[in-house]
Amino acid sequence: MKIIVTVKQVPDTSGKVAVNADGTLDRASMQTIINPDDLNAVEAALQLKDELGCKVIAFTMGPPPAEGMLRELMAMGVDEGVLITAREFGGSDTYATSQIIAAAIDTYGVDQDDIVFSGRQAIDGDTAQVGPQLAEKLGLEQVSYVGAIEKDGDTIKVRRMLEDGYMTIKVKTPCLLTCVKELNTPRYMNIRDILSAYDKPLQVMTYETLKNHPLIDKTTIGLTGSPTNIFKSFTPPQKGVGTMLTGDSKSVATQVADVLAKKHII
């Protein structure tokens, strides 16, 4: 059994957001972080590793500096990294991205008892599409918005979080689960794994590595192969500072009514 986790380096939204002329993000000029939901996916994988002793492999697609992120994941306990990087892959939307990552995972190999974890969505695009698309392209069972996991042999019982409740689903391996932040609290890197992070295996998959895979077709990858066209990117105006009303319920209700009356809403 092994666990594959897909991770993405995203712009640190606490800093400035820069946009290219074509509307895509100017990632090179922005500070990056590991996508928060992906850290929950990594933690879920590492908890199963702690329990079962299986290997955890992190896959990411991005420019060569994304290796630094993979090394940080290794410093948390991930065993191997796969960096998918090529000019041909640049500018891919979710459809093209999932084509490429699916080709990479398929090339690495998915066995009967394996699990693929993805984060629910990335904070840059907020689409929540790549995980489910990957499952489709790899032909895997999938459950999205996973908030709890129990593994029993080849069956995994998961809690699927919905807006107004949750559903409990049983799924058999191999499968893909997309993780939400309620699933766990990601661990910190630790000193021992930091010291060994740069000794762990890292495989680089380029266009040359993947070009013969059936999912890789120049017309369906990269910016030109992406069906999504970005019309315009902009930073929304910041909202003003909110007002905190304090006191007991009655007093707060009175204050709310006063505010609404002053604004002629009531």
């Binding site: 090394r71 940080e72 410093a75 910190y188 890197m189 630790n190 000193i191 930091i194 010291l195 992070a197 740069y198």
Partner: peptide
């Protein structure tokens, strides 16, 4: 490694 230790 030292940079990573500082970050952690």
């Amino acid at each position: 490694q030292h940079q990573m230790i500082r970050k952690m």
